[in-house]
Design a protein around this nucleic acid. Structure first.
Lengths: 125, 125
DNA sequence: TATATTATTGCAATATTGTTGCATTAAAGA
DNA sequence: TCTTTAATGCAACAATATTGCAATAATATA
């Protein structure tokens, strides 16, 4: 399944690259200049996730948010997972530098961590 | 807004009390002997949450899960938040004793933490 | 450059989860 | 027993996300 470059893909990627926050599908649709179908946006985002370009966070509102996290790409950092912060005031989600530290009993195998702190962010407090 | 005791309330509470795992609305509906309307189950659960009898976890499947966590009630433990583990194999969510440890930059105020580890649990590995 | 292959897209339909309005029922105090 | 109003069932609704299918277009190949 080879990937092809399309204006859609490029537009979504650029939006994410220029955003300091994680974005939901509807936020992406709203912020894009061009009109892209909802289903297409989801498909593009899911493909990005498959290719490890983007990571997905599910907040307690049950919605999916997507982010390109530059910190993730830092090869020095072994930190695989980091906290996310959801501000209830400005309704944004951002990647925090704070790593997720945990230990699980033997027998448990962790494949992913989805950790969201909720509250008021620096800008809104 | 006084609360009243009803068979529904009692049934849901007993189910949660006897469950070692966090349950979703549909799981509760399935496991109950009596037939209870979906909306009612949600209302009962949300009331339990308001009364701090139960806590709610949102997993990466976007679904809400509810649990009575005995560990939460231990007054010795200052631990407010703990990790949850979602097993992809048996599709359950359980409360872990592992506390969530984090620090946020000044200016951020944390009101809640929703942390779910995903993978394979002890029973399934 | 023209053509063939097939990844990508838009559209509509569908599934799932959760909430809300409203009339009815029933718990609990007077 | 009567009154108050919390709780319930039902249907409708809202929001999020996915899927099938036909049409389109990116890319490799001739």
């Amino acid at each position: 399944m080879n990937r092809r470059n399309t204006p859609t893909k490029e537009a979504v990627l650029n939006l994410l690259l220029n955003s300091s926050k994680a974005l939901s599908q509807d936020a992406i649709e709203r912020q894009l200049d061009i009109d892209i179908n909802r289903a297409t946006i989801y498909r593009v985002l899911n493909r990005f996730c498959e290719d490890n370009l983007v990571h997905k966070i599910v907040a307690e509102d049950g919605k999916q948010y997507f982010a390109i996290c530059k910190k993730c790409e830092n090869p020095q950092e072994i930190i695989k997972y980091h906290f996310h912060f959801r501000c209830l005031s400005c309704d944004t989600i951002e990647c925090m530098q704070v790593p997720v530290e945990y230990s699980v009993p033997s027998g448990y195998e962790v494949q992913n961590a989805n950790c969201v702190l909720t509250g008021t962010c620096n800008d809104c407090s």
